[in-house]
Design a protein around this nucleic acid. Structure first.
Lengths: 226, 226
DNA sequence: GCCGCTAACTTAACGCCGCTAACTTGACCG
DNA sequence: CGGTCAAGTTAGCGGCGTTAAGTTAGCGGC
């Protein structure tokens, strides 16, 4: 296992970026196999590519940057997954639900990548990952929230509402990833309930005034029942 | 800094547990100062206590167990904080809100500890931490949710609802910890909105039937306005 | 009073890690 | 054909978690 699996042939003069892609690919594979990020060492990645460790540093400043590139690469698929999930939905609310479910499913299908992207210490914010997340998950969510606002289903600042929906989805993903042994029951249903509750909350809140106190909620409920 | 700060005197025959507490205390302090868990090394902890590194392994199997003990220790305060926050609230809904806000505030005030407890890889689930979390945060939440169900404010399985509320609170905490530079605005208000929306969602959901489809929600809203 | 036992440590070291400095090789250009 | 410089390599530093084996100090028993 420690012997260099296969010695690559040196890259042609012009293109050292070739190696860069090979490194990312190898790291991506190793990260998917391992279940902890620090089990993937620079030495292991180099070995998988068939190159010595310091060569990696010709293409990435440090390990964080390499992992950032890997995670960004994985999360580019999220865009596709979310669009595909919502392709058949015709109403904004249905799309919002599909987006949320797809987001959570993606997170659970790529736990280590999600952890690196969304659950890790952030000495310096990982620009590449954040860009991908923004352009994929976030922008779809935001656009759909804006549709909901335009349709009068939601009221308020779309950006704030998007963050709130994101927090709801992230909460489900994070909780299930961190504590998978808790009795959530079927995870997909759990996720659906959480998202549904969040969406419902946003729908109802305007009916109660801007910032409803707990008592106001109970009072409203009583009037509803009457 | 590398010289042993102060050499402790050897513990008496009966009580080696004395050192255990000193180690936890030192690790707790170092962890609060550092802002990444792996910046706290076993060597640094040993040095702070005034002992050599292997001595730690007389009391803890490995680093994870030590950090687990530290985190559990910190989270014992969460119980107090949550009770204090809700002390003046007289209705279940108000308590639920206070609990949630206190939980999020605690998480943000102890980011690294919260990360270790709730955002980290879980090769083996950290029993001690989970016990503390369960006996503090979770049991209060659950009891209050049960009150809400008893009062007819919520409907459904209290355990499931508690998990859903926990996911909401965890989502806010996790998102703000991971991406503090995003424009959430005032964090306390953001948290309050998220929790309010989740609670509202749970209040309203029974009015729409068991598992409302997106269109059902929109339809219900239209009827409400009429 | 000293003796052996063992709890409470220490010393020394292993193998891994991320990362760097300094050297070598080989493809291309004139 | 020889110089240049990108694309690697070899060697190694300091730090990490962890372990094996040795040492020291308190305490019960004779």
């Amino acid at each position: 296992m420690s012997a260099p699996a296969v010695r690559r042939t040196r890259a042609k003069r012009g293109s050292g970026d070739l190696l860069r892609e090979e490194i990312v690919a190898a790291a991506k594979r190793l990260l998917a196999e391992a279940d902890r990020a620090d089990d993937v060492s620079m030495r292991a990645v180099a070995d998988a590519v068939g190159v010595t460790t310091p060569s990696i540093y010709l293409h990435f400043a440090d390990k964080q940057e390499l992992l950032g590139a890997v995670v960004a690469d994985v999360f580019r698929e999220l865009d596709v997954a979310m669009l595909a999930a919502a392709a058949d939905e015709s109403t904004p609310m249905a799309r919002l639900r599909s987006y949320g479910l797809a987001y959570i499913r993606f997170a659970l299908d790529h736990r280590e990548h999600y952890r690196l992207a969304m659950l890790d210490p952030c000495p310096k914010p990982n620009v590449e990952v954040d860009e991908v997340l923004h352009s994929a998950a976030f922008s779809h969510m935001q656009a759909t929230v804006e549709e909901c606002v335009a349709a009068g289903i939601f009221q308020g600042d779309p950006l704030a509402i998007t963050f709130e929906m994101w927090a709801a989805a992230h909460g489900v993903a994070g909780l299930v990833i961190a504590k998978p042994y808790l009795p959530f029951g079927d995870v997909e249903e759990f996720a659906d309930r959480c998202l549904c509750v969040a969406a419902l909350g946003h729908v109802v809140r305007p009916l109660l005034g801007a910032d409803p106190a707990p008592e106001a909620i109970v009072g409203w409920l009583a009037r509803q029942r009457a």
